[in-house]
Design a binder for these strands. Sequence first.
DNA 1: ACAATAAAAGACAATAATATCTTTTATTGT
DNA 2: ACAATAAAAGATATTATTGTCTTTTATTGT
Lengths: 144, 144
Amino acid sequence: MFSKTCEYGLRAVIFIAQQAKTNKKVSISAISEAIDSPQAFTAKVLQQLTKHKIVQSIKGPFGGFFIEEKNLKTISLSHIVQVLDGDGIYTGCGLGLQQCNDKEPCPLHFKFINIRENLKKMLENTTLLELSSDKNIANYYLKN
Amino acid sequence: MFSKTCEYGLRAVIFIAQQAKTNKKVSISAISEAIDSPQAFTAKVLQQLTKHKIVQSIKGPFGGFFIEEKNLKTISLSHIVQVLDGDGIYTGCGLGLQQCNDKEPCPLHFKFINIRENLKKMLENTTLLELSSDKNIANYYLKN
DNA sequence: ACAATAAAAGACAATAATATCTTTTATTGT
DNA sequence: ACAATAAAAGATATTATTGTCTTTTATTGT
Ligand code: FES
Ligand code: FES
């Protein structure tokens, strides 16, 4: 469904968001351990997310990655996926036709766009605020 | 969503199915032209599908690929996806956790499994019989 | 038997995704 | 100023995916 880049990115951002209340910054080593991902690769992913202002970072001692608490409700998973995987998942044809539209639809088009739209809406409606609630932190896992 | 292998495979099988009524066999060159895919690569994909009995093939003059008309209603798109992409799309975690289950769910689990299940059901309910109807052939495209 | 046709099979090539390693830059405290 | 810390940036390596090319095998008609 998503690329490894995107999977690590989503998990990393969720983890960072979950520390936002305590205003704690988290290091790349803490993140990659928490989400069980390759450290150097995850660092690259976070570089992209920092450039796109999804997370913020500070260098040096006591530095690390963080998200301001006030931003949690405006950052949705769809935004993160868009940055890391592009919008192919939101607009692309299920059978790989170069363009997907109602005018020259593939045989799967009208069934596929429903699924695609449901996925899109689900990601749009899921914000970091929701995912960083105490209830969420207690009940869900970022690695296994 | 799907690999290129799977996209070409789905389009190829749909095209072959659409010729099943006339009992016509289709060559790999006819297929790759009809669905606008790289010929040699598509041939490899069809090799896999032939091994898995989704399509049949005959070598030599007047040979080619075909599907028996009586099989159209039992072959679903989910079967083809399963063969070419495996069942990761049906059982895998949206955030890439090694295993997806209700006991140790990722933060997206209960939202994601709905989408995943809808996709699975859609593919299961879509048979080659439906996709090879005259109405379907008239209204939908396999390339653009 | 022979030539022509077409898929199967195997080998190879190019590209993209994933992953790691090294060097640089910014920040902090001494 | 200096050493320590941690992310940014750049370079490189590995693997998987996508794509092509050549040889072999099966089938058909002459
Ligand atoms: S054209 Fe294929 S999904 Fe829209
Ligand atoms: S555990 Fe992530 S989708 Fe089920």
